[in-house]
Computed example of a mutant assay.
Amino acid sequence: MKFRTAAVQYELADISSFEQFAEQVTHYVRNASEYGVQFVLFPEFFTTQLLSIGDETGKALPIERLPDFTTDYIQLFRSLAAEYDVYIIGGTHVLEIADGKLRNAAHLFHPDGKVDVQHKIHLTPVEVGDWNMSPGDGLEVFKTAYGTIAMLTCYDIEFPEIVRMARAKGADVIFCPSCTDDRHGFYRVRYCCHARAVENQVYIVTTGTVGSLRKVDFMRSNFGQAAIISPNDIPFPPAGILSEGIINDDMLVVADLDLALLEEVRAKGSVTTWRDRRTDLYPDWS
C-alpha cells in the first residue's frame, strides 16, 4: 500500500472573521490536492487564530470561547475532505466537555463525512494551569482506505509508551500535530518523532504552527517545521527524513509513504526493533 501525504506549516496571523480562516484553510487543502495527496495534516492549536477575531472592543477572545466555533470548524473540514476526496487531520481544536472543562482534540475528517476524534493525552503546564484543560483518557487508532493511523499531539510524542500502544493496535503512521513557541520545544518534539519512528518502525508525519497571533496569549511566538519521518534503515533516506519544510516559512511538504517497506524492515531490516522488544523484561504496552 502506497499513499501520498502533505503536512502544512500553517502561518498564524490575526484575522477579523471566520471567513478569513476558511479561506486560508481552503488554500492549503487546494494546494495539497494539486500534488495528488490522500492525507493532509494541519498543526496543533491552529484554530486559536479564531480568537484573534476579538470581541466588540477588539480584545482577543479567551480560550473558553474557542468551542463556540466547533460547528463551523467541523462543517468546513468535512466539506473540504469531501470536495477534494482526501483525509484531513484538522490539527487540533479545543472542545468543551462536562463541567466547563476543555479538551485539546485532534480530528480526522474522512472523505465520506465521518469524523474521528482523539483527545490529547499528555498536557503541558500551560494547557492545565492557564487554559483549564483536562487530558484524554484513552488511545484509539483509526481505519482508513490506506491503512491504520493514530493521532498523537505534540507532547504525546515525547512518551514512548503511548506510541508503542498505537503500534500494538496496528498503526503504521502516526500523525503528530504540534505547536511550539521556541527552538527548545520544537526540537524536543522533532527528536522524539525520530526516536518513535526508530523504536516502532513506523512513519511519523508532523507539523507545527508558524507566524504570530499578536492578540492571543501564549500564541504570540511560534517556531515550526513540517517533516515526514521514516525509520532509519536501508530502504529509507539515511537521516530518516522523507521531506521537511523550511523552518518558520508558510508552506507545505509532501512525500509518499510505502507501507510495504515498513513490513520489510520489521521482518528483515538491519535491526528489527519492533520484533526484538524484550517483553520478558519490561511490559508490553499493547
Rank of each mutant, 00 (worst) to 15 (best):
R4L: 07
A6S: 10
V8N: 02
V8Y: 03
L12F: 10
E19H: 13
E19Q: 14
E19D: 14
E19G: 11
V25G: 01
H27I: 03
E34I: 08
G36F: 05
V37E: 05
L41W: 00
P43E: 05
F45D: 14
T48I: 07
L50D: 00
T57P: 06
G58K: 05
I63E: 09
F69N: 07
T70N: 12
E83Q: 15
Y87S: 04
H93K: 08
H93P: 00
H93R: 09
D99K: 14
G100E: 02
K101M: 12
A106K: 00
H107I: 04
L108T: 03
V115Q: 10
H119M: 11
I121D: 08
L123A: 05
T124S: 15
E127Y: 05
M133W: 00
P135E: 09
T144F: 04
T148G: 02
I149M: 06
M151T: 01
T153D: 05
C154R: 03
V163T: 15
R167V: 03
I174Q: 01
F175T: 00
Y187Q: 12
V189W: 00
Y191D: 13
V202K: 00
I204E: 03
F218A: 12
I234H: 13
F236M: 09
P237E: 07
P238M: 11
L242Q: 08
M251W: 07
V253F: 01
A255K: 06
T273K: 10
T273W: 12
L281M: 14
Y282R: 15
